[in-house]
Design a protein around this nucleic acid. Sequence first.
DNA 1: GACCAGGCACATC
DNA 2: GATGTGCATGGT
Length: 216
Amino acid sequence: MRRTLLGIYGKLYKKFGPQYWWPGDTPFEVIVGAILTQNTAWYNVEKAITNLQQKKLLSPKALSRSTDSKIAALIRPSGYYNIKTKRLRNFLTFLNSKFKGNLSKLLNERTDLLREDLLRIKGIGPETADSILLYAANKPVFVIDTYTKRILSRHGIAPKDAKYEKLQNLFMSNLTSDVKLYNEYHALIVKVGKEFCKPKPKCALCPLKNIKRKKG
DNA sequence: GACCAGGCACATC
DNA sequence: GATGTGCATGGT
């Protein structure tokens, strides 16, 4: 399995090169982006982030002081704007109550404790939590998303109904615990997913077209 | 116009 | 534990 997973990574990296993720300037921007991109195309998230930036709301303090209706209006392009406003608020409320708004303190928590904290926030599930862990806190945690599940099942590496934690464990138990590797690997999966592994696959030119499960 | 996008919570069985 | 549904904009 280790060989298979490294093989996939090698093919993707050779084809696409480094992705320079996360596409956000600060840890807080990464967190906001992680929440806004839930089931949403990134180009729509970018519009929302730009709106927040222009209003100088991309800091925990500034966003905490803003109102729900104002935030909702600004993040509107990213879709689900009412529920995402609540989710941002839930995160800020947690940050302010447990860490007095000090984001570094939160992100410097021990990895397992930080993950538990994030998962307790309503609106932050496993993928969002792990994206924050990896891309905002630089913790060696592998992120699983729709594309990861789809690619693994289509190549016979995992069943299509495999659980999140199961797939995450597949990567983390077979690859060395390395922030840089996990960062690049997930970004490359999203890249190949967007281009080739949509619900209607375009396998002809996909760099993974010859990848099959191998024993060992 | 249909389909899709870097999920999640909640209801129901 | 599995399955279904609401949430919503904007690009292809």
